[in-house]
Design a protein around this nucleic acid. Sequence first.
DNA 1: TTGCTCCTCACGTCACGTGAGGTGGC
DNA 2: TTGCTCCTCACGTCACGTGAGGTGGC
Lengths: 221, 221
Amino acid sequence: VRAIRHYHEVGLLAEPERRANGYKSYGVAHLVRVLRIKRLIGLGLSLAQIAELGDADEHPEEALRVLDAELAATIERLQRVRVELALILSQATPTDLPPQLGRAVAEVDLSATDRAFFVVFAQVVGPRALDAYAERLRAYSREPVITEFNRLPADADEQTRQELAERLVPFIEKLFADVPDRQNLLADAPRGVPFALNAINLAIHDLYNPAQIDVVRRMTS
Amino acid sequence: VRAIRHYHEVGLLAEPERRANGYKSYGVAHLVRVLRIKRLIGLGLSLAQIAELGDADEHPEEALRVLDAELAATIERLQRVRVELALILSQATPTDLPPQLGRAVAEVDLSATDRAFFVVFAQVVGPRALDAYAERLRAYSREPVITEFNRLPADADEQTRQELAERLVPFIEKLFADVPDRQNLLADAPRGVPFALNAINLAIHDLYNPAQIDVVRRMTS
DNA sequence: TTGCTCCTCACGTCACGTGAGGTGGC
DNA sequence: TTGCTCCTCACGTCACGTGAGGTGGC
């Protein structure tokens, strides 16, 4: 009943004459119109589209074809979402990381900081870097020198920082030694290499403490 | 950007600290949160559902299962709509009548009044009556006595009305003679036989003129 | 007199989109 | 001084849902 009044308001349905008491008096013509409107809504047309068609009983061929194409696209999209959902549900991977990294992360139980870093990381690098890191995450997280880095106090002295950097370099070196075409790991970054490097840099500066940032600087310079 | 502000407004995302000029200063934690929100929205969750999950990175298994079931239902519904659309498009049937009647009506070119009558009729009777009428519509609409009925003036005199009724009865009789179980044609009316009879009666009284209504009355009494 | 139906405002829903009008940074 | 970015209201979107408050019919 509220829907009918709404159709009056937007001009889709003529208001019928009133009886003496003000009640609306609908006839079959109104009913036919309402049935048509309801039918078209059921097919997925908007009220605006129905208004465009007018109240003639023409065959809205063009509108229906457009609608059909939209439906096909919607169905496809929803089916892709379902595939994603099935993957997430069956593998119990978290929702904020792509599957390959998600699985690896679920197994190794990273710190909250490292997790946050990888969430950002996964957004800006391409599939190759993702795969490479996913495969090495287990060895990475179990390494004592990594734990040491994670626990480095913000006020660690210079010697500690330098020494840690010197021990980290060969470890990372070895870890990624067998990655093919290693210099171009970022080449397939979806938003470009400079963007990716910048984002990673910003993330590091936001997530880690000054001593840790200094260690990273010493490693890469 | 407006979306971000909206998340602030509904409490999904904490507002970051401001810089001296009032600009918001986002950190990686905010980014991670936003990415998670966007991801869940992409999967089809509402903001309210996301709020219920909290900002912990727990695995929203239950919510995802519910969502998946809803998606399955939605996809099925849309596919049924597409089947309907394909039928309508391929057979060029009108949208306000069921297919079997629609096809028949498209061929015989009824008067607007008769069309309106059949739209109502199709809503209240069951498939059996629909099929029976669809099959006989061609013969019905070509019959001279039907044309005569449709053109009957509102002020036709008594003798004309009585005579027309007497000629209509055998025609209708013959037309439906070979319908099996003819007395129960309305037995499968979706909203019940009394409802269907009442609706048909009201439609006749609204659509036809007094003389025509009187003829119908004489036929059935 | 008592329920019941019908009426007209008018605000709420959902996830933002879109100006309006103002201010800081370069 | 001139664009450009960022800010905060605040109304609009879409198809109705949902009371609020009042009135006629039996």
